[in-house]
């Protein structure tokens, strides 16, 4: 009896695992996910809590073309008081977008650039201030024509 009952659950387990692998693994390979972004943020901040505010992430909510999306980040802090800026996109193949360190000749903690967005997703801007605090802003946006496809 024991010999005939044990193979069945194992086979079922294998079936469930392969079924899961078929559904979730290809999407994991193609796109980043919010957990990866959370891990990246934790790698930057360590144990320090991240607060919302001070950072303004300016992105269109509806993006027609994901190949070049104008992005402006303004940090409400005096020049010289912002150590670093990170941008993450949780729906891109690679979640990191930009990492920037402000130097002593920086005139204002403000940056504009153009980014690629592969899908409708949430973009996070994280700023590290000289006093050791972390501030973030998030924008959830809709992309109608995705980048990286052709």
């Amino acid at each position: 009896m024991t010999a005939s009952t044990t193979p069945l659950p194992l086979a079922r387990r294998r079936f469930v695992l392969t079924a899961l692998a078929g559904t979730t693994l290809p999407t994991l390979g193609a796109r980043a996910n919010p957990r990866q972004v959370a891990d990246l943020i934790r790698a930057v901040t360590g144990a320090t809590p991240v607060q919302t505010g001070k950072v303004t992430l300016d992105l269109p909510v509806l993006v027609e073309n994901g190949n070049a999306v104008a992005m402006t980040i303004t940090i409400d802090a005096p020049a010289g008081s912002v150590r670093a800026l990170h941008v993450f996109a949780d729906g891109n193949p690679l979640p990191e977008v930009l990492r920037l360190r402000f130097g002593p000749a920086s005139g204002a903690p403000r940056l504009s650039t153009r980014i690629r967005l592969a899908d409708s997703q949430t973009v996070t801007a994280l700023a590290e201030l000289a006093d050791g605090t972390f501030w973030q802003d998030r924008v959830e946006l809709l992309v109608t024509l995705a980048a990286c496809l052709e």
Partner: peptide
């Protein structure tokens, strides 16, 4: 850099669009 002093140092990833454009402030 401006007059030898650093304005910023940036690491770019593939998510930056073709023909990268950056606007920033210096003093």
């Amino acid at each position: 850099t401006l007059g030898g002093q650093e304005v910023f140092q940036a690491d770019l990833f593939p998510a930056i669009s073709a023909n990268p454009f950056l606007a920033f402030w210096a003093v």
